[in-house]
Amino acid sequence: MARKITYQQAINEALSQEMSRDPRVIIMGEDVAGGAGTDGEDEAWGGVLGVTKGLYKKFGDRVMDTPITESAFIGAAVGAATAGLRPVAELMFIDFMGVCLDQIFNQAAKFRYMFGGKAETPVVIRTMYGAGFRAAAQHSQCLYPVFTHIPGLKVVMPATPYDAKGLLIQAIRDNDPVIFCEHKVLYTLEGDVPEEPYTIPFGEASVVREGKDVTIVTLGRMVHMATEAADNLAKQGIKCEVIDLRTTSPMDEDTILESVENTGRLVVVDEAHPRCNIATDVSALVADKAFDSLKAPIKMVTGPHVPVPFSDVLEDLYIPNAAKIEAAVRLVMGKKN
């Protein structure tokens, strides 16, 4: 039965159902239970924002609090994956990739290829990204373009509770390392989610609005900004097709190209900084493979090339929004703003 639950509950349910189904699935991370070794509650936090709450009570030692040692425990998750477990490690904020990146990009990502196809590394690294929490420069970044750049990693960016559950179950069942990126602002978003376990294949974009005038390719939290823009524009007679990539690696090129071939116009919306991000990547794809379909230059709407600022006014200015997307769409439609 489908019912409404939050993005955060959807992630928790996916973890719980997969842990029930497969005893090889374990969870590790900083305070994923919370309270290890203390005199108080032994599941005091259930993750810094409570996403894994309740799992320690259900699964006991299969939910492991780690010391604050990302290199060690992310590396251990990778190692455990090569040795028969299916670990889900929580890298609390994606910004902390810096203290464990070697384990991800030089180790996990390369095993399959480097060992001649003989290695499988079924590890999932769950991590929070994105601005909007006034969490400043070291806790608000996107950084998924960095992971997308690296062959051997799969990068997943759910925008809805439904996608969060299905993509996380897929990630856990997948035999390759998956970076599962959760936007912290989306945790409270509600949506219809089936109670049963289900999967969503990687590399399949979701078309969340159909339209003939402009293609908007986007991902993560920006999907909601883009649909808001598309709904506003629809009232003015401009019909946008909004494509949620859902995974940036692999990426569903066909859905992007098909849509641009129909609309002839492309706006790409990405919360990440403007250089070498998903927007530039999609723009390059379309310029390369669908140039003749384009009726207007491609426009990108992204965060600016500055670290995420702390002050609320600055952070609000930083984050792309519906108004900026609408302006970009009107521009490619040849309309004055």
Binding site: P194, E196, P197, Y198, T199, S206, E210
Partner: peptide, 16 residues
């Protein structure tokens, strides 16, 4: 429609 296809795929992707 696309929605019909999405609904059927969502069903087919349920475990079991």
């Amino acid at each position: 429609s696309r929605q019909m296809i999405n609904d059927i795929l969502a069903y087919k992707r349920l475990d079991g």
